[in-house]
Design a protein around this nucleic acid. Structure first.
Lengths: 186, 186
DNA sequence: AAGATAAATTTCGAAGCTAAACAGTACACA
DNA sequence: TGTGTACTGTTTAGCTTCGAAATTTATCTT
C-alpha cells in the first residue's frame, strides 16, 4: 500500500525506494510490486497537486475557489448554477457554499443574483474574469502535463490510460461512497 | 488536464467521459489522451483516499494522526522522533506539531517525554496501541490494494509501475518545491 | 388562505493552522 | 566560571474554513 490514508503534506520525504524498503521491513505480507504502483501513484498525484497549487495561487485563487470555477465552467455556457447544486457537486453543506460564494463574489469571480422566475432560488454565474482565470490556469496546467508525459511513448500512453481507467472503474463500482476523511496516500 | 488544482471533495461528479468531453468543449488545445491519463490518475487517487479514509476512521484515527503514525513506524524501531523532526517530515510548523502530539498523547497513540541526555529535546514514541493501529490499517489497506489491482496482468503491472515511477522522477526533478496549496486534481 | 415544503442565509461554535512571543537548555568562549 | 548565543519546544492570540441548527423568504398544495 502506498502509504495508505497518509496525507497531503509535502515535507522532506524519504525516496520512494527507501520508503518501500521501510514498508517491507515493518509490514511483512506486502507485494512489492503492488506497493510500488500504489506509492508511486499517490506520490505522483501529490506532486502534481503541488504544481497545480502553485500555478493557481500565482493567479490568486485558492483551491476552494478553483473547485467552484471548475464546476461552473464544466456546466457549460452560460456558466450558471444554483448554490445547492454546487454544494452537492462539491460535497459541501449549503452553509459552507454560501460562505464560499460570499468570498468569490467579493473577489469578482462570480456574481450572485436571485432567479426572477423563482425567487427562492439564487443563480451563481461566472464572471468574465472568473472564466479567464480558469482558462489561464488550464493553459498553465496543460503545458505542465504535456511536459510531464513527454517521455512516454504513444504505446505507453495508451497502456497507462487504459490501465488507469480500468482501475478507476473498479474502484467506482466497489465504492458505496460514504463518509470518511480524505487525504493523500503515501 | 485532469481538472487541475481541483480539490478533494467527492460530491456527485459527472463520469470521466463526460468530464473529458466538457474539457474538450471548453478548452480547445487539449490532448484527449493526456487528459484521460491525468484525470483518471487524479480521480483514482481520490477514490482510493476515500477508501483509506473510511478504513482509518473506522479505527478511530484521523488523517493527521495517520501521518504521524506512519512517520514513526517508518523511522524504524524504537519508533522515536523529535517534534521538530516530525514537523519537518510532515511539513508543519512546530506549533501545529505540538498540538497534534497533544491530541495523540491524550488518545494513547504516542508518549511524549523529555530526552534525559539533552533536556532541550523531546522524544515522541509510538505506543504499542499506536503501532497496532498502524498495523491494522495496513492490513486493511493491503487487502484493498490487492483487490484493486486484481485485474491487471503481470505485464501490465510492470509497465504501470515503471511508467508511474518514471513520471514521478520527472516531477521530483522539476519541482523546486515551494509553497502552494495542495489539492486533488479532477 | 393555511400549512407544508424548499432554498438560501445567518448565527454560533469547532477544528486546525500560523506567527510571534516565551521559556528552558546546551554550548562556545573569553 | 560566567555570559552571550543558538536551538527546541510550548504558549498565546488570531485567522480561515467549515458544519449544525435556527431563520427568512418564496413557492406549492389543497
Amino acid at each position: 500500500m502506498g502509504d495508505t490514508p497518509g496525507s497531503t503534506g509535502i515535507g522532506s520525504e524519504p525516496s520512494l525506494e527507501e520508503q518501500i524498503a521501510a514498508y517491507q521491513r515493518e509490514f511483512r505480507d506486502l507485494d512489492p510490486q503492488v506497493e510500488k504502483i500504489v506509492s508511486a501513484l499517490s506520490r505522483l498525484n501529490r506532486r502534481m497537486n503541488v504544481a497545480y497549487g502553485r500555478q493557481t495561487s500565482a493567479l490568486g485563487i485558492s483551491n476552494a475557489e478553483w473547485e467552484v470555477l471548475k464546476a461552473l465552467v464544466l456546466s457549460g455556457a452560460p456558466y450558471r448554477m444554483g448554490p445547492s447544486e454546487l454544494a452537492k457537486r462539491l460535497g459541501l453543506t449549503p452553509a459552507a457554499m454560501t460562505h464560499r460564494i460570499d468570498r468569490m463574489v467579493a473577489e469578482g469571480l462570480v456574481t450572485r443574483e436571485r432567479d426572477e422566475s423563482n425567487r427562492v432560488r439564487v443563480i451563481v454565474e461566472l464572471t468574465t474574469e472568473g472564466r479567464e482565470k480558469w482558462l489561464e490556469a488550464m493553459r498553465l496546467a496543460s503545458v505542465f502535463e504535456e511536459d510531464l508525459l513527454q517521455d512516454l511513448s504513444a504505446e505507453e500512453r495508451t497502456v497507462l490510460g487504459e490501465a488507469l481507467t480500468r482501475l478507476l472503474r473498479r474502484v467506482e463500482h466497489a465504492q458505496p461512497d460514504a463518509g470518511g476523511r480524505l487525504t493523500d496516500l503515501d
